[in-house]
Nucleic acid binder design. Structure first.
Lengths: 357, 357
DNA sequence: CTGAAAGCGCTAACAG
DNA sequence: CTGTTAGCGCTTTCAG
């Protein structure tokens, strides 16, 4: 006895209670009627031994696991943890627990985590993917219950829940345009990311519809890190063609951008408007308070987990569920970081601004 | 076949490869020498079937789990997720995975999570406790590998890693005092929390050492929520005895306090100094940027997980490890939310301020 | 209502 | 080197 303590098994309980293991199992699971007297005996024995049925053994026998896997790309990003918190809520209400994995945005690591989750025979997995859809082929082919959220691999057929990223970016950009902005930069992150690609499209569409140019120098694609955003923004603000507004397509990007604007000392929103993506309690602490387009994090997490549970249930009943793609509405939250540009050029100056240096 | 797919077992692999299960097991685990030819065969069969050894079955046999449980009180609090991210890093490097649980600050839920974790036979658990030490008696008595972090139940004997909360608060308060503040309020959260109790003590000591009074009205104990902090701060700022500085003992408390100061329109730091607790990237975005005392989140997570792994290793070798209590140093980060008070009273006005209304 | 016994997928003696 | 086999702790027929 290395620990000086051996975990009690169902046999120990049965012995102490003076009944058979089948009886113990029956009272534990309430799966059969057991006489009150013996039930009592068993209960006492369980309490005395502090017995906890071994889920691994149980699963081995029943093939029913009450654990789901969750993979996110960044455990330190509040967006993901908010989603996960909501998912956890509905999962734990349904008696499910969580294997949480951090893929660190590394497809190889994500695959390893997936393998690990299979090895543990999780009932399903919830996934903010960082790989291309081909990676999930083997899974969908075997009808493994899988729900994507936030990041849905392009070209992927399967269930997912995400924000309408196109619309979100469109709204944010429209807001800027309506304010009178014409020179709008975007910190787009990386087009590799389906979410960010979609946001860039939304931005493009809003610009195009208003006949506004989308300039390459105004399009930051240097990655998703705070640092990258900071550096790109610094360059942007130092350039002769200073934009009058910047749209940041993620909370990290906003941080970098904000820092750069502060560093340069450009007054916001007087000389530069900023709109962010995602909304958190501390966004109100920023001065100026940040105008941002919020994703419904709680709804994403809750809905995704509900779908997952549904698919688990369907699977165990042999039903086959239609793929379901849920798209949730973003919400533009107007605060103080956006205002009309310093001097609004009249509409027909449009291409003149291009030549002016 | 409800799923149209049956998970391949070691038997399937053995059959396909034309060898025995023992051979398959040997190549999977590298536990015995297998001829190159058969190794090859087995490898092919595994790949063809996309075989993933069932960890549950394996555990049942070996009694060795490579999963650890982690319980935190709030999945949406960046402090905890930063710690967990660091812990995850070292755990996954060691080949361990994570059962993450959110106790929601509810002792009953925490207990349920603990029971669940035992049922799954996790190798150990990492815990930011929300209960009193009595709750963990049964665990320590059986030498279950358990490491506490952040919140360590008072009176608890066992391993833990935490910030020196007393010192952190002491430093923050000293900073304010050195700036000339005499009327310092504290949002202490709740003395139920060991961490917050310790912070209050540090505050007290700093005040006492300087002969400064700790007034009851200046001591916010209305809980840990943003809302509670907001309301308390509002009252504080509306009172005739306006403090010249407020020390917020957590990031949530800071949020509420900051919001209240903004609401009232009191200029910070000119008329009121604020110091926060914990430091996150967005703290720099606040205007003024928040002076805060930072906890070494990454170090806490990494160290705690290292200790946990050590204890697991020791346990399986039959060694008994000494309890280890690690206390990490906080770091005061000076920014712009603190400044000398509007008018510095001379030291001998000390008790006069008490009577003035 | 109750108990005996088979077997889930795997590892680890043990015997060839 | 390789295969056979006995359980790990649990649920679940199947007979009493």
């Amino acid at each position: 006895m290395s620990h000086g303590w051996k975990k009690p098994t169902i046999n120990d309980v049965a012995r102490l209670a003076g009944v058979s293991v089948a009886t113990v199992s029956a009272v534990v699971n309430g799966t059969k009627v057991v006489s009150p007297h013996r039930t009592q005996k068993v209960r006492e024995a369980m309490a005395a031994l502090d017995y906890h049925a071994d889920q691994n053994a149980r699963f081995l026998r029943t093939g029913k696991s009450r654990v789901v896997g969750v993979i996110i790309p960044d455990l330190a990003n509040p967006f993901y943890t908010q989603v996960v918190a909501a998912a956890d809520d509905v999962a734990s209400r349904a008696g499910y627990s969580f294997f949480l994995c951090n893929s660190n945005d590394d497809p190889a690591l994500e695959q390893r985590h997936l393998d690990m989750l299979f090895s543990h025979r999780v009932a399903a997995v919830l996934l903010a993917s960082c790989d291309s859809f081909a990676a999930y082929d083997r899974l969908i082919r075997r009808r493994f219950p899988l729900v994507f959220f936030d990041r849905v691999p392009t070209g992927f057929h399967g269930s997912s829940v995400e924000t309408d990223n196109h619309l979100a970016a469109f709204q944010a950009t429209r807001h800027l345009i309506e304010l009178g902005h014409r020179s709008i930069a975007i910190l787009a992150g990386s087009i590799q990311r389906s979410t960010h690609a979609r946001r860039l499209e939304g931005f493009r569409q809003a610009m195009l519809e208003s006949g506004l140019p989308v300039r390459d120098e105004y399009c930051g694609l240097s990655g998703l890190s705070v640092q990258a955003a900071y550096e790109f923004s610094l360059g942007l603000l130092a350039s002769p063609r200073l934009p009058t507004a910047i749209f940041c397509t993620s909370n990290n990007l906003l941080l970098g951008c904000f820092r750069a604007v502060e560093r340069v000392g450009l007054p916001c929103p007087e000389n530069i408007s900023i709109v962010g993506f995602d909304d958190f309690p501390w966004n109100e602490g920023f001065r100026p308070a940040i105008t941002t387009v919020a994703q419904p994090t709680a709804a994403i997490g809750a809905k995704a987990m509900e779908m997952l549970l549904e698919r688990i249930a369907a699977g165990s009943e042999g039903r086959v569920l239609e793929d379901q793609k849920i798209v949730l509405q973003p919400e533009l939250r107007l605060r103080n970081s956006t205002a009309p540009p310093p001097n609004i050029p009249s509409p027909n100056e449009l291409d003149v601004t291009q030549t002016a240096s």
